[in-house]
Design a protein around this nucleic acid. Structure first.
Length: 391
DNA sequence: TCTGGGGTCCTAGGACCC
DNA sequence: TCTGGGGTCCTAGGACCC
């Protein structure tokens, strides 16, 4: 989806079209001013002058989405809001409306599923689609079906998306970025040298800042340069698994399937405080936050229909160093008090003399309670042992 | 100028088992 | 007194993605 979070807001506030608009922020509501001016007015008639600006923000948030107009100023995703405010103080800032985002996310995925059911969910605003077997999927190399999907999403939601069509997910993902926004690009294996190899390595999905830095240090800047590296050299530098993957990716090879269903691995909640808190001096405040996080995780688990038996915490100190602790217990649970009890034991195993900026609670090793009841494992009194000598 | 929140997957070491 | 070759599970950290 193109500038998804921002585009969703533009549906409500069309008067902001073409203006630099940024979505993000932490706890502090960026739309306080808007709430006040809203009274009695249709949303689309709220004067542009009444919208909150980046310059008025003074919190710890980052940018989730910037419209293309805002990107002109050098603003981008994951940038701190304070830095963004310096680049474009007049940009309008709105908070993320998660309920509305989720609604739009479900809506656009539903449109795609109607046309092409083999869909892999890649988060709130992205999917992979296998339309090899969809009737008409091969027309114009897939371009016809891509147009159909694009049009269907626009009609149903008013939102635009960009589609890349390719022989595999790796290339399709890169292709989807060629013509943003509202673009379609179709690429074939034979386009590898011309279209893919000139790109920076960072464009490969799976090469992040760390790997890129390491590649740069080796004098490897483009995907073509990476492809030219002897496999042996990559294996030596990056280990057998990562090295082999880098080589394959540079050659545009990816045989990973489109996965239509997956079970969640963990559920977590975390929060960055408005100001750093001291475990001793701000004990009461931290305790309340801790309890709330446990309650939220428990509620999320129950809403999704899962229980878990690995309970963990995450801390971030004021110097941004993060630590985690976890404990796996016998009994599955989705109970806030039980989660808090185990998480509390984890807390005892970390340094609590330094100021914290973040606290998180996580539950892993998940199971569905209904399935658990169906196969309770070895019941007491029914256990048997059998051993045979090996030789 | 400090850097959100929710996830997945991988690695590596240690405990423990056969 | 020295020392194998599997395997699973648990834990901590880190890279990466949306």
């Amino acid at each position: 989806m193109d500038a998804f979070f921002a585009s969703v807001e533009l549906l409500r506030y069309p008067q902001l079209k073409g203006l630099p608009l940024v979505i993000g922020g932490g706890r502090r509501r960026a739309d306080d001013a808007l709430q006040a001016s809203r009274a009695g007015l249709p949303l689309s008639e709220i004067p542009v002058a009444d919208f909150p600006r980046l310059r008025d923000y003074a919190g710890r948030g980052v940018i989730t989405t910037a419209t293309y107009a805002a990107r002109q100023f050098g603003i981008g995703s994951a940038m701190g809001l304070m830095k963004a405010a310096r680049l474009c103080p007049d940009a309008i800032l709105l908070p993320v409306d998660f309920d509305e985002i989720r609604r739009c996310s479900r809506a656009f995925k539903a449109v795609i599923r109607e046309i092409a059911p083999l869909l892999e969910d890649r988060g709130i605003d992205e999917v992979y689609i296998d339309f090899t077997e969809v009737p008409g999927g091969q027309r114009e190399g897939g371009r016809v079906l891509a147009r159909l999907i694009q049009r269907g999403i626009l009609d149903a939601t008013g939102l635009s998306c960009s589609i890349g069509v390719a022989p595999n997910k790796l290339l399709a993902k890169m292709a989807s970025e060629f013509n943003k926004p509202a673009g379609i690009s179709v690429i074939h294996e034979s386009d590898l040298q011309r279209l893919i190899w000139p790109l920076p390595c960072r464009k490969i999905n799976g090469i992040g800042p760390k790997t890129d830095q390491k590649l740069q240090a080796l004098g490897i800047h483009t995907i073509g340069e990476l492809a030219a590296q002897p496999l042996q050299a990559l294996l030596r530098q990056f280990g057998p698994s990562h090295g082999a993957w880098l080589h394959e990716a540079a050659w545009g090879r990816d045989d990973s399937p489109v996965v239509t269903h997956s079970e969640p691995v963990s559920v977590s909640r975390e929060t960055t405080f408005e100001r750093d808190l001291h475990p001793v001096r701000d004990k009461a405040e931290l305790g309340a936050i801790f309890t709330r996080l446990c309650e939220q995780v428990a509620a999320d688990l129950r809403a999704k229909g899962y229980v878990g038996r690995t309970i963990g915490i995450k801390l971030r100190y004021d110097d941004f160093q993060s630590v985690t602790r976890e404990l796996t217990v016998e009994q599955y649970s989705a109970d806030a008090r039980e989660i808090r009890r185990i998480a509390g034991q984890c807390l005892k195993r970390v340094d609590l003399t330094r100021r914290l900026r973040l606290l998180g609670v996580r539950v892993g090793t998940l199971a569905r309670p209904d399935l658990l009841a169906a196969s309770p494992g070895p019941a007491p009194g029914l256990q048997a042992g059998l051993s045979l000598p090996l030789f």
